[in-house]
């Protein structure tokens, strides 16, 4: 193909999805940014643009606390999910015969495609006062009274989200592990490393891009999760998304909601960038 018409064809073809993303993604995100500088409805000032929303967001103790808690809970969810996921990805990539790999991947993705709401609710059933865990433990005589600490707190949020995002964490790591040329591992053994040191010096560094991808793909959406904290979080497990929802739907305070959304996005972006920078040495080794 001639390079000029080639370029034009490519641009023409990509323009419908691009236009859609500009109109319904870039535009609205810009709008949120704009709204975060507008005065709140109950506080009419003459100024058209104001920083007072940001001032309030930093000064009122509840907002920084919620954001901090959201980031901490998401961080914990991410660590737990990725740590639990890595051995599974490793198992499927290295110990499952090629014929059965897609069956395993299939098994892992199925729960993800069943109603998220119902799954979250079922965790409530499992962890609840008369739930599966408590009734089994009492049935076995291990405890006298039901455990209270497993529902309506951050731990419940972490467990539920770790479950919800399992396939998102497994797949990128699996893909990275699959890409590793097996002869590299043999070369490492040949050069005198044992299985453990081969894993640490060869497998893990080469799998890092996948680990990073799964960290980001779990961390970013969970920061803004709304359903799980509402259902199983209790008062101590409420997160920033619940506050954003409150501002928009109950208090009709769009500027404050927008400000919190901007701050959430900003913190997520900063953390993602820090992670990317820290992982640069691993990302560069990729061809």
């Amino acid at each position: 193909m001639p390079s000029d018409t080639h370029t034009i064809k490519g641009l023409k073809l990509v323009s419908p999805p691009l236009l859609y993303a500009v109109l319904l993604l870039a535009g609205p995100l810009g709008m949120i940014l704009l709204f975060s500088f507008l005065p709140q409805p109950d506080n009419p000032t003459e100024a058209t643009f104001t920083l007072s929303n940001y001032a309030e967001a930093f000064n009122d103790p509840i907002y920084p606390e919620l954001l901090r808690r959201s980031l901490l809970i998401s961080g914990a969810v991410t660590v737990v999910t990725v740590l639990l996921a890595f051995p599974i990805a490793y198992f499927i990539s290295f110990h499952v015969s090629p014929r059965h790999k897609s069956l395993w991947l299939f098994l892992i993705t199925i729960p993800f495609w069943t109603s998220y709401l119902i799954r979250v609710f079922l965790w409530k059933v499992i962890l609840g006062f008369n739930g599966v865990v408590n009734s089994s433990l009492m049935g076995l005589g291990l405890i006298e009274t039901p455990l209270q600490f497993i529902l309506y707190n951050p731990t419940a949020v972490v467990i539920t989200l770790a479950h919800a995002f399992a396939p998102f964490a497994i797949l990128p790591i699996f893909v990275a592990l699959e890409k590793i040329d097996r002869s590299l591992l043999e070369a490492s053994r040949d050069l005198g490393e044992n299985r453990l040191t081969t894993f640490i010096r060869v497998t893990l560094p080469l799998a890092m891009p996948g680990v990073l991808a799964s960290i980001l793909i779990v961390f970013i959406p969970t920061v803004g999760d709304y359903v799980t904290p509402e259902q199983v979080g209790g008062p101590g497990g409420t997160m920033i998304a619940n506050m954003i929802q409150l501002q928009f739907m109950r208090l009709d305070n769009q500027p404050m909601g927008a400000t919190l959304s901007v701050l959430t996005m900003a913190s997520v972006t900063v953390i993602a960038l820090i992670l990317l920078v820290l992982n640069r040495p691993f990302l560069r080794t990729q061809r």
Binding site: L24, I244, F248, Q254, T264
Partner: peptide
């Protein structure tokens, strides 16, 4: 981008618009 954007952000930004 929506793949790595918290859904609530997508939701509220569309709502505002």
């Amino acid at each position: 981008l929506p793949l790595v954007l918290p859904e609530i952000i997508v939701a509220v930004s569309l709502l505002i618009v």
